[in-house]
Nucleic acid binder design. Structure first.
Length: 290
DNA sequence: GGTGCACCTGTTAC
DNA sequence: AGTAACAGGTGCA
């Protein structure tokens, strides 16, 4: 039996911008403002309403889901305070002004890791499609209010699949990485949960020891799932807009851009990156080539 | 430490 | 219609 509840959320809050800003790839909009996805292993529906946020879940799970949502949506983050800290930068202020209420999410580290390994030289629609294919094929199916969704397969489950089959699902050259990372997780070579308590540098070094995980993917996993908000993923879009806005289009390495951004924005770097990325991507301001 | 290239594959641009 | 360029990068010479 599906139950519906409401939850208070801090202002500002924008569910659509948050779920559609390229942090998560398996949430989908269904009808009349409702989104369906999973939080933890639970199927959940979310809809923003005037008074806050409504959620639907399986009866009996209401309280657990409420707590999980608080975690997932990072409701403890005070966006107004963050805006005060970084809003003195006109470019950042502009992006904030266009998407007030866009929040970082606190994702399940394993799914987040696989997602961003699969993101390299790809695009959001394709990432969504291939992750959806993987979960349909190997994830446990669940039903909520007539919608079928799938749990993200555990490392042990993906470890049994094999590279060839992953390629068949559309992962391309990324299949080799996932095929190597899954057994490493399954056997505990890297303990993602423990990385939450490690320093940014230590956690990043461990992530980058995995095949298919470089600076950029590591920072995505750190910001989106491991509470390291000082991470600052430098992708094509960010590289381009930073060079253009702050370096007069000059030559500067990704490593230098990263240090510069972290020195400038500190713990808020992850938030700034997400606003700049989302804004730049939707603005479609020219196609970056390097 | 920097540069150049290959890597899958679906879209989009000429 | 055919082809090239491009996409939330990474690994390796």
């Amino acid at each position: 039996m599906t139950r519906q509840r409401d939850i208070d959320v801090p202002e500002p809050f924008d569910l659509a911008a948050t779920l559609e800003s390229g942090q998560v790839f398996r949430w989908r909009r269904v009808d009349s403002g409702w989104y369906v996805g999973t939080v933890g292993q639970q199927p959940v529906m979310l809809r923003q309403v005037e008074e806050g946020l409504s959620y639907r879940c399986e009866g009996g799970a209401e309280e657990a889901v409420r707590r999980a949502l608080h975690d997932f949506l990072r409701l403890e983050d005070d966006l107004r305070a963050i805006y005060r800290e970084v809003g003195d930068d006109p470019r950042v202020a502009e992006a904030i002004g266009r998407y007030p209420g866009l929040r970082l999410l606190r994702q399940e580290p394993w799914e987040c890791l696989v997602s961003f390994v699969c993101s390299s030289v790809s695009n959001i629609p394709r990432i969504s499609r291939t992750l959806e294919a993987v979960t349909r094929r190997y994830g446990k199916p669940m039903d909520l209010a007539g919608h079928t969704l799938y749990a993200f397969p555990a490392p042990e489950e993906l470890a049994r699949v094999g590279e060839g089959e992953l390629r068949g699902l559309g992962l391309g050259f990324r299949a080799r990485y996932v095929d190597a990372i899954a057994p490493a997780q399954a056997t505990g070579i890297v303990d993602l949960a423990a990385l939450r308590r490690a320093s940014y540098e230590e956690a990043k070094a461990q992530l980058m020891s995995l095949p298919g995980v470089g600076e950029k993917v590591a920072d995505c996993v750190l910001v989106f799932s491991l509470d390291k908000l000082e991470g600052f993923p430098v992708d094509r879009w960010i590289r381009r807009c930073l060079k253009e806005w702050y370096f007069q289009g000059g030559t500067i390495s990704d490593a230098a851009l990263l240090s510069w951004a972290q020195a400038r924005w500190g713990w808020y770097a992850g938030y700034v990156q997400q606003y700049l990325f989302h804004d730049r991507r939707l603005a479609g301001a020219g196609t970056p080539k390097t």
